[in-house]
Amino acid sequence: MVKKILIIEDDPATSRLVEYSLRHEGYQVLSASNGLDGIRKALTEAPDLIILDVMLPGLDGFEICHRLRSEPDTAKLPIMMFSAKAQDMDRNTGLLVGADDYLTKPAAPADIVSHVEALLAKKEQATTGQEKTSG
């Protein structure tokens, strides 16, 4: 099944890069340039993974992540934070608000792709595991 990735990023160049890189690997990519739009799309489009920038206008990435985690539909959704903010504090905050991964810019497109794949695989296993046990 083709995985749908939602990228919430306000810099068009970065958005374009990630979108192209993932599309090239066969993913379907949606984008939103601000947090609110991002949440809306997350709820309506049911993506399999969200790439979330931190420095967004209005609500920042951490806040978005927290909200997504509060919504039952998106509570378990794999979220990868992707940011130029590279300090430990930022990374920790990301994990605190429930992000599954934190990638710092600049990242090579190949790295972006591999992190996405890894996160999706993990999610697969978890779901399978659950299904297995609940089976």
Partner: peptide, 12 residues
């Protein structure tokens, strides 16, 4: 951030 963002695009 401002340095890294363009670098992301340029490098990427």
């Amino acid at each position: 951030h401002e340095l890294r963002t363009p670098l992301q695009s340029i490098g990427g």
